[in-house]
C-alpha cells in the first residue's frame, strides 16, 4: 500500500463550466505557510480574464432569468456537494492556511452553512429591498432590485474558502455572474470549489475562478468595459486598490472598497441596482378628468 504512487491533482482554472489550463500555458507553485510545496496552479493571464468575463456575460441573462426558487435550490445543491467533500476541503484549507485540521473543518462547515443561508435569500431579497412607492399621481410605481450584471471579485487573501463564499454567494444569489480572482497564495480551495459548483447544477459561466497574480490580472478586470461591479475586499495593497478603483471609474463600475464588511443584506444590496417601473393606473371615463 505505502508503495503506491499518489495521484496528484492538477489545479486548473474554472471558466464557463470547463476546467482549462491557462491559455498562457503558465503555472505557479503553491506552498503552505510552512513552505511545503502543495501543487502547481494555473497562472491566469489577461486573456484568461477576458475569456472568463465573456463566459460570465453569456451566462448572466439566463441565470438572472431563472426563477429565484431555482437559484436557491442550486445554491443549496452546492452546499450539499460541499458537505459531501467537507473532509477534502478541510485538508486543503489546513494545508493552505496552516490551521489545525479540526479548526479547518469548522471553517468548512461555516462555509457550507453560509451557502445554505444565501440559498434561502434568493426568493426574499427582492421583497425586502424593493417595494411599491406611493407616488402623488395616478400611477402604479414599483421598485425592485436587479442584478448589476458581471461582477469581478478579488477574493480575500487569507480566508480562502469562507471569505470566497462570502464574496460569491451574495453576488450570484442576486442573479449576477462572477469572475473571481482567487487568493494569490492560497488558491487551491477556490479551484476545488469549482469542482463542487460544476456538479451542483450551477450553469457554466455563472462562477468563473481564476488563480494567478492579483497585480497582473486584477487591472484587466477593473478596466474591462463589460464588467459592471468590482469587489476589492481581497486587495491588501492600498495603492493597488486605489488604482483599481480609478480604473473602474472609467466605465463607472460599482466598487466595493477593501476593508468594509457587511451583513448579508448589505452584501446582497451591493450587487443589485434598483429598477423603478411606472404605469398609469386608471380606466374609467367620466371622473371629470384632471381639469
Amino acid at each position: 500500500m505505502s508503495d503506491r504512487l499518489r495521484v496528484k491533482k492538477t489545479y486548473k482554472l474554472y471558466v464557463g463550466g470547463k476546467f482549462p489550463r491557462s491559455e498562457s500555458g503558465r503555472s505557479y507553485p503553491v506552498a503552505s505557510p510552512d513552505g511545503t510545496e502543495l501543487a502547481n496552479a494555473a497562472l491566469a493571464s489577461r486573456k484568461d480574464a477576458r475569456d472568463a468575463v465573456a463566459a460570465a456575460r453569456n451566462a448572466q441573462r439566463p441565470w438572472a432569468g431563472q426563477t429565484a426558487y431555482l437559484r436557491g435550490q442550486i445554491l443549496y445543491r452546492a452546499a450539499e456537494m460541499l458537505e459531501g467533500r467537507a473532509g477534502q476541503f478541510a485538508e486543503e484549507l489546513a494545508d493552505a492556511t496552516g490551521a489545525d485540521p479540526h479548526e479547518a473543518l469548522g471553517t468548512v462547515e461555516q462555509a457550507i452553512d453560509r451557502l445554505v443561508h444565501y440559498a434561502g435569500w434568493t426568493d426574499k431579497y427582492t421583497s425586502v429591498l424593493g417595494g411599491a412607492n406611493p407616488v402623488a399621481g395616478p400611477y402604479f410605481n414599483h421598485t425592485t432590485p436587479e442584478p448589476l450584471g458581471v461582477v469581478a471579485v478579488v477574493a480575500p487573501q487569507d480566508d480562502p474558502l469562507l471569505g470566497l463564499i462570502d464574496a460569491i454567494a451574495p453576488a450570484i444569489a442576486t442573479g449576477n455572474t462572477v469572475v473571481v480572482l482567487a487568493s494569490e497564495s492560497k488558491p487551491l480551495p477556490a479551484l476545488s470549489l469549482g469542482e463542487v459548483l460544476a456538479t451542483s447544477d450551477l450553469p457554466g459561466g455563472v462562477v468563473n475562478l481564476l488563480s494567478g497574480k492579483t497585480a497582473e490580472v486584477a487591472p484587466h478586470l477593473a478596466s474591462h468595459a463589460d464588467v459592471n461591479g468590482l469587489d476589492l475586499r481581497g486587495v491588501a495593497d492600498a495603492d493597488l486598490a486605489a488604482s483599481l478603483e480609478a480604473a473602474a471609474a472609467e466605465t463607472l463600475k460599482v466598487v466595493r472598497r477593501p476593508g468594509k464588511d457587511g451583513n448579508a443584506l448589505d452584501l446582497l444590496r451591493q450587487w443589485t441596482e434598483y429598477k423603478t417601473v411606472w404605469h398609469p393606473a386608471g380606466m374609467a371615463a367620466g371622473a371629470g378628468g384632471a381639469y
Binding site: Y139, G282, Y291
Partner: peptide
C-alpha cells in the same frame, strides 16, 4: 386608450 395619458393631455390643454 390610456386613461391617465388622455386626462393628462386634457389637463395640459386646460
Amino acid at each position: 386608450v390610456d386613461a391617465v395619458g388622455l386626462e393628462a393631455r386634457a389637463a395640459g390643454l386646460s
